[in-house]
Write a protein that binds this DNA or RNA. Structure first.
Lengths: 121, 121
DNA sequence: CTGTATCCATGATGATACTG
DNA sequence: CAGTATCATCATGGATACAG
């Protein structure tokens, strides 16, 4: 079984971890942390390379977990805003911290990989 | 592959993040952080439910990234020890911090999910 | 504009069997 | 003991088309 992003994981902690560290989850959380409020199309364009399907799926999951608040204005054409909840802000800060640390160690990891690859093949 | 305007998550960074937050990556890092040194079989038994294939794969990835050091003693039967490098200890601490935070918010997330599911379907 | 529905290629995953 | 090899399966994510 794949340790799915959406359900079917025995350990709830593991599931939540998957949600916030998932490919698009990280980007959505950090984007909303930086911008405060973003529309669906702003998230889609800002993140880039994300399909609408995956963005919707990611937003639904984060909304269900209580990390993201969805505000749909009853207008035509539709206008939907997304913001972080307090819980979501906590999550976003933690995830950003991990992402920042990772970013800072990219050179060290790249060096380690080169060494490893050179020694083996 | 290009990422966001709001977020600067490069591909190598994303890959590293996936390595350390992967299902078995988290468990291996935390196990080694707690125990200091563990043999292959100790990791396999301690983590539980992990196939030898996935454990090997996880260990190789973490070793290549410079997070884990592998020490194979030239004896029969084979005896292989795994420990964290300094870089790996940093990673393990960050990951454990995120995992601990996640663990502490499981009730809040569960409540949010119940609310969401009740309101919708 | 903000989604939903459907199909499908890809790749991750784990069971099993085997090896040095 | 510590892996490696092979294979079946099944979720994941992307493309596409369409709807409200």
């Amino acid at each position: 079984m794949k340790y799915g992003t959406y359900v079917k994981v025995s350990c709830p902690e593991r599931a939540i971890l998957e949600h916030v560290t998932s490919r698009w989850g990280v980007l959505v959380l950090v984007a909303l942390l930086d911008a405060g409020t973003l529309r669906f199309s702003e998230l889609r364009d800002g993140i880039g390379d994300v399909s609408e399907k995956m963005l919707t799926q990611t937003l639904r999951t984060l909304e269900r977990d209580g990390f993201v608040r969805r505000h749909a204005r009853p207008v035509i054409p539709p206008h939907v805003d997304y913001t972080l909840t307090d819980l979501g802000r906590e999550a976003a800060l933690k995830v950003q911290a991990l992402a920042d640390w990772t970013s800072s160690r990219v050179p060290a990891v790249a060096a380690a990989q080169s060494t490893y690859d050179a020694a083996r093949g």
